[in-house]
Design a protein around this nucleic acid. Structure first.
Lengths: 228, 228
DNA sequence: CGAGTCGTTGAAAGAATTCAACTTGTGTGG
DNA sequence: CCACACAAGTTGAATTCTTTCAACGACTCG
């Protein structure tokens, strides 16, 4: 990883902080560059601090055995990374890998913890942020437990469009493999592949090599509904 | 639900608060009594505040359709309840039902939010609490996605013993049905039932009507391991 | 041009749920 | 106290869904 310039205003952390602190953080942060596929940190690595994605996108995952992983979330410019390591935990409970070439600001735990002690507005906001993340996680837990595979893949597609948006020709603006979609939906590559074919035949989605376009959100959403 | 006395010291919230606040909270909290099976709040109810369990135990769940639910966690004396409703959310994203006759302290959101603004130590602790909960949720997400059913049920049993401990004859000290265990492990009643028989034959557990004794934690844990 | 990797596909195997039937237990009313 | 009805617990069989496996074709890189 390589150092690079960082616009402090783009950081999640900065976006709601008192101006005085913006100057402080500007002195303490470092910015790193990650190549596509490069690990930002791995599960089990010692926690050193917290990252803010400046450009690019990242997957956050948990490993299961050698081969399988569950992608917990996708993070893009402006998002926090590594905040799961807060609070006395010595090892990251999750791993993060760049999906495309990305830049990330790094703030050491020491500085962050010290800041949280004095900047209460930040602590409060961060608490709310965690609360929201927790809700999302629990929603997804339920989906993984009870929703069937097709529903989860459909959800994953809608979620991806939500997070990354679409580019000029309406394709989801994400650099993402079918394998990653499978890992996000908690299923296998083949299942995703076959379901995509099915969706393409029904013209619900269009796949163009790597990228995906959603033509009919409503019908896609039907798969997420509980069957009677 | 019925009002009852509450020892303020037993509240999670109080346990790490400045003494001055203990007095304040004593004036603002209310204590309610819930019968076994009674709902403390339901998914979709308007968020009014936060609860602390004083005695008894509670299941926190998310509904899926009419019949199915995923139990997110079991809470017992000293635990927080309803904190998922913090942060501008107008409806509880989860429901909570008493597993046995229970008492819970209630603190209104207004008072809590006001307190968080002034009692920064509390905010900080609460933030850490959320961070830990988030980690647990994500661990369980992975398990639900990739671990097979037997592993999840085995985990559930160990977790239950962890949370509720054992009574004099080594049985897990929890009032819990097989259906609830199934809902916690994200599976069906029948599957749990059959697996319990299997475990009992192997003498890994002993079931005595409602209550369960774990004889061989190691072998039980084997089910949670990734198969090669 | 050949090796190897990745994407694609169909068939088989396996796991879990669903369904339906049967048994046991519980409570109520005669 | 017994008989009956209803709910809860137990069980096996069948179905369904998903994964796994293996094979084939296309594409890329050396």
């Amino acid at each position: 990883m390589q150092e690079a310039a960082c616009n402090v205003n783009s950081c999640f952390l900065c976006s709601f902080c008192i101006p005085a602190w913006k100057e402080a953080i500007a002195l303490h942060k470092k910015t790193y560059q990650f190549k596509k596929g490069e690990d930002i940190f791995r599960e089990g690595d010692p926690v050193k601090g917290i990252y803010f994605i400046y450009t690019g996108s990242v997957k956050v995952y948990k490993q299961w055995g050698e081969q399988k992983q569950l992608i917990l979330r996708f993070a893009k410019a402006g998002d926090i990374l590594g905040h799961r390591g807060l609070g006395g935990v010595v090892e990251y409970p999750i791993g993060a890998t760049a999906l495309e070439d990305s830049k990330a600001c790094f703030i050491s735990n020491d500085f962050l913890e010290a800041t949280l002690k004095t900047n209460h507005e930040l602590t409060y906001k961060l608490m709310h942020f965690y609360a929201t993340e927790l809700q999302k996680a629990e929603m997804r837990m339920r989906d993984l437990a009870h929703m069937e595979v097709k529903g989860r893949v459909a959800e994953a597609l809608l979620e991806l469009r939500n997070i990354f948006g679409v580019n000029h020709d309406q394709h989801i603006a994400a650099t993402i493999t079918r394998q990653d979609i499978a890992s996000y939906a908690g299923t296998t590559y083949e299942t995703v592949f076959k379901f995509f074919n099915e969706l393409a035949e029904e013209k619900i989605i269009t796949t163009n090599g790597k990228s995906i376009k959603i033509n009919d959100s409503d019908r896609l959403q039907q798969f997420s509904k509980k069957q009677s």
